[in-house]
Simulated scan of single mutants.
Amino acid sequence: MSETSEIEDADWFLSAVLYLAASFVVLFFVRKFFKGGQFTERVSAKNLIAVVTGANCGIGFETVKELNLRKAKVYMLCRTEERAFEARVELSKKGCDSSRLIFIQCDLDNFESVRKAAEQLLSLEKHIDILVNNAGIMYQSKYGSTVDGHERTWQSNYLGPFLLTELLLPVLKKSENGGRIVNVSSMLHRQSAKINLATVDEKKSYGMMKAYNQSKLANVMHARQLTKILRKEGTHNVLVNSLHPGAVNTPLIRSTFLYLKGIKELTAPFRWFFLKTSRDGAQTSLYVSLSKKVDGISGKYFADCKLATESELALDDQACEDLYNYSLEQVGLEKK
């Protein structure tokens, strides 16, 4: 081989190495971008008592794990004991202290179940420091109603968490560290039209996207209105905020086309790369639950571990008040 050929081969090899290295760096930073903001503060949760709904999988599972690893006692509110037990075993394998993981059955589709869960919590604890309203359902292709007569997405994502929050407020107010209520919403709340409370449960007005988006708008409005009520009554030690966890590759998307047979397998690598993991999706929930930077901030909306801009509809004072009063009536509580 001539000296010229050897030089050309060496140049080609060097170019290939540089190209691969550059591609790796680009992919690394693109992936980092899609992972979103990360909660990196070294904040202990020792002696804190937390309640997390939808705790057996996805974002809820990761939220429970991190809170427990930071020494909190965590009540796992799940629909079934079987799923909670499986999650508890898995959490123990990941280093969690199972003695600080307590299951309580709670089905947000059923107000009676929510009341029983709240009664159990009130009998066990004199105070609660963190409530993460995480559980929810997404993109139900067919209309469904609950035993309480409400459209299923509306009750699961909004009315159920609303009732749980109201019932636990007395013990959240007793938190020496300051109670924190976290509503896991979505950026899709911005796509919602104004919520028509007169037709929200009607089958003829149901739409898969509409139902989800308006339930998430209600989560944001709830945080804002509850903050106003608490401050008006002189309660300043309870923070209520909402958040967007990001586009997350969790079981919640099982109702979408991404989980159809064939498509699920085909899109797996793309979902891994372009969507957040459950751990990534839990970061803003943890940030709002624990961060010192959130001290004194309430009624706001967060995304990627920082303040974000909510829909203008969520800033409508009268609409927020109407929604809150309607919600009290629907769950059987007296107006304040």
Rank of each mutant, 00 (worst) to 15 (best):
V182Y: 06
L167E: 05
L164K: 02
I181C: 14
N183I: 01
L159R: 01
V182Q: 08
S156N: 12
F162E: 06
G160T: 07
N183Q: 15
L172R: 11
W154C: 07
G178W: 08
G179Y: 07
K174W: 00
K174Y: 01
L159S: 02
L167Q: 06
S156E: 05
E176I: 10
G178I: 10
T165K: 05
I181K: 13
N183K: 00
N177M: 13
G160Y: 00
P170L: 09
F162A: 02
L167N: 03
L167I: 04
V184Y: 12
L167V: 02
P170E: 10
L168F: 03
I181H: 12
S175E: 04
V182R: 08
V171A: 05
E166V: 02
P170D: 11
G179V: 09
F162L: 08
R152T: 15
Q155K: 08
T153L: 00
K174T: 01
L167A: 05
P170W: 03
I181L: 12
L168E: 02
N177E: 14
W154K: 05
Q155F: 05
L172Y: 03
Q155V: 12
L163Y: 09
T165P: 02
L172V: 03
G160K: 05
Q155I: 08
V182K: 13
P170A: 10
W154E: 03
L169G: 09
S175K: 11
V182T: 11
L172N: 06
Q155H: 07
N177T: 14
W154V: 03
P161C: 01
L163W: 07
R180K: 15
V182E: 11
N157T: 06
K174P: 00
T153C: 13
L167P: 09
Q155A: 11
L169R: 12
E166M: 15
F162N: 08
W154T: 04
Y158H: 14
V171R: 14
L159Q: 04
E151K: 08
T165M: 05
F162Q: 09
V171T: 15
N157I: 01
L168A: 04
I181D: 11
T153W: 01
V171E: 01
G178C: 06
W154N: 03
F162K: 08
L172D: 04
E176M: 07
Y158F: 15
Y158M: 08
S175Y: 06
L172E: 08
V171K: 14
Q155W: 03
S156W: 01
E176H: 11
K174S: 14
G178Y: 09
K174C: 07
E176W: 00
L159P: 12
L163I: 05
Q155P: 13
R180H: 12
S156D: 04
L159N: 05
L169N: 11
V184L: 14
G178A: 10
N177H: 15
Q155D: 11
F162R: 07
S156G: 02
L172K: 12
L164G: 06
V184S: 13
G179T: 10
G179W: 09
N157D: 14
S156K: 00
P161G: 03
T165G: 08
L168K: 01
K174R: 15
G160R: 10
I181Y: 13
S156A: 15
V171L: 03
S175A: 13
P170M: 09
V182A: 13
E151R: 07
F162H: 03
Y158N: 05
S156C: 15
N177D: 10
E166Q: 15
L167T: 01
V184F: 10
Y158A: 06
K173A: 11
E166F: 00
L164H: 02
S175R: 12
I181N: 12
